[in-house]
Nucleic acid binder design. Sequence first.
DNA 1: TAGGTAAGTGCAATATAATGCACTTATTAT
DNA 2: ATAATAAGTGCATTATATTGCACTTACCTA
Lengths: 194, 194
Amino acid sequence: MSNGSLEVMQNVSANLRQARQQQGYSQERLAERAGISRRMLVNIEAGESNASIATVDKLASALGLSFAEVVRPPPLADKGPGLPLRIWQGERADSHASLLESLAMPGMTMELWRWQLAAGDSYLAEADAPGCQELLYVLAGQLQLQLPLQQQTHVLQAGQSLAFALDQPCSYHNLGAEPCTFTKSVLMVPHQDQ
Amino acid sequence: MSNGSLEVMQNVSANLRQARQQQGYSQERLAERAGISRRMLVNIEAGESNASIATVDKLASALGLSFAEVVRPPPLADKGPGLPLRIWQGERADSHASLLESLAMPGMTMELWRWQLAAGDSYLAEADAPGCQELLYVLAGQLQLQLPLQQQTHVLQAGQSLAFALDQPCSYHNLGAEPCTFTKSVLMVPHQDQ
DNA sequence: TAGGTAAGTGCAATATAATGCACTTATTAT
DNA sequence: ATAATAAGTGCATTATATTGCACTTACCTA
């Protein structure tokens, strides 16, 4: 046994009890169906047991529920509506890049960038945290992307897109004679290490 | 220990290993962060351990994942750290939308869309799961976005962007006389319910 | 009176999750 | 070659989940 401080435990406890009562099972009958002891079910419903995956799964099956359904937090009435709702006119702040939108959520940040590279220009980006991802979309011109660690080079024409991981350095080059414009959708996860 | 026949176990095993490798942790460092023994982590990743809720939760937290994300069946398109490196020529096809890129990670999916609405055209999108987010960026024309639940209406000119949550229905309208083109960066968190 | 069912508690016994240690096997770098 | 890191195995030990039983409390019904 352990105290019921864990959030997941509380979810399991509440969901199981609610489903059991809705389906008209007594603790004894459900325990029998699931193939566990009634004592265990009492503990779990009381939120006093750190059950194993297998035990929770037996109970879920006996109630016709999926594992995820038993584990997930109970439906919250209505969470905070919408979010930063603002219109941003992209600024041409630094020479080639402007941040259009940034959405900060717990554990991650999603960013939308607009970039422009003059003809012949290039830019080298350092490696970011593992798990960070980027989606490119070329609006106009021609963009060459190099990923040294993978020894790969890709050339994107207007209308083409590319996805790659940011846990490596990468460089952008405009090989064409026209300015190159593209968007970057970036998903950042916090760098937690050492 | 127990055999790894349980589906949930296999999910936990695969998800944990993938997330750990993506974030660059060794088994030892992750076990240390999570506060469990390396021996246990080896067993779990091998699908040979019927772990407890608390143990799985410790590992999920250490990886910055929710319990549900670790437990859920892995998304089909798993790109390792190496990554998906493909160039996609957005199709202008029949309708108004084309998916440029889709990145599936454990627990979430990031998508990049290119949309086009003819003059006077509109589109109504259903509400998505809580936690899903969208970044709009208007490339050409004029776009009106309506969020009925918030009783808000926004008009975006070319070059402007907007961020909002997708847990509510929304509608797009092209009020102008020219076709409206815009990109949508969407962050999806799996809808696990019922 | 009772008699039935359902839920909760305390405790010893047992099964097993979880640990710690000592290996082995690769792989990488110096 | 040597050292260092990462991953996997076997096994004894410890911690704890899980069981079974006896008991209480409450509520309903004849």
